[in-house]
Amino acid sequence: MIFINPKTDYAFKKIFGSSESKDILKSFLNALIYEGKSIIENLEIIDPNLPPRVQGLKDTYLDVKAFLNDNTIAIIEMQVLNVQSFGKRVLFNAAKTYAFQLQKGEGYRMLKPVIALTITDFEMFPNSDSVISRFVYKEETTNLTYTENDIKLIFVELPKFNREIAQLETLTDKWIYFMKYARSLSEVPEIMDVIPEIHQAFTIANQVNLTPEELDDFERREMFIYDQQGAISLGREEGREEGREEGIQEGMREKAIAITRQLLPRLDDEAISQITGISIEEVRSLRSTN
């Protein structure tokens, strides 16, 4: 068996955000948000449609959105590219989701909590060994939790997860293993297959169950991600070879501009800015002179 990579936008939303994914998403969120406890009894997936098959691929951010049974709004994002100001974007999206709940004339009492769950294919917090990090508002000195603590940020850093199959103990372990290693597996591990929702996730991810058009779309998206990861990594390495901080920054900037020019025919300005770190205004300027 060959499984599609759940880190790409098409696969991620097909597995967790499609119309048949309700039980899968419920198990996934219980595992990563509530440490495997069955807190979420029901949910409603918002906009359960796959990304459109378009020429310009947008793999800089991958979202699934759901209403939980307690009216909490959950935003789930799989981020594969370590782009500039990504942490700010996570906070912005969570705050925007929280604020945009209100219609004109509605009171603040109508606001419901927001949980932003972000899975990254890179390290967000290099000074921490934790695979899962949870952030809420607290008082700096006493650590007192803010009364209306309605926005929670949860990060899962896949590179920090190093458990082997035999070491998988919890539902959380098994879902993280699925996210990190599904693409490289040739069969479903028995220890994971006994969980109905994970079994269903593997079934959806099995390439045998994809149409030729779906498989082609997936392969193009995965190749795009690998290309950009390689290009960004090369740019940073070439910058470092300058030997001094000024040279590093200049080398990285020159490579970012070169990558931007390559992406202009394929992506919109916002997506290019998120990948390369070049401002939207400068991307637009490059587009006008390209």
Rank of each mutant, 00 (worst) to 15 (best):
A201G: 11
A99L: 14
G107K: 13
G251F: 02
L171V: 01
Q55W: 02
T289N: 13
G239Q: 00
V156I: 15
V194Q: 11
V80E: 15
G239L: 03
F224W: 14
R134K: 14
S128D: 14
F155T: 15
E77T: 06
R220C: 11
S233E: 14
R244Q: 07
K26R: 15
A99P: 03
A95M: 13
A66S: 12
G247K: 05
F28C: 07
N127Y: 09
A99Q: 09
S133G: 01
S38A: 04
V114I: 12
V131Q: 09
R109C: 08
I15S: 07
G17W: 05
E282N: 08
S273T: 07
K96I: 05
A74V: 15
M223G: 13
L267E: 08
R236T: 05
Q200E: 15
I151A: 08
F100N: 15
N162K: 12
G107V: 09
D217K: 00
K26Y: 01
L91F: 07
A95D: 04
Q249Y: 04
I40T: 08
A231L: 14
A201K: 07
R266Y: 09
Y137V: 13
E148P: 02
D173L: 04
I151N: 06
Q84A: 11
P6L: 11
P196D: 12
E250A: 08
L81T: 06
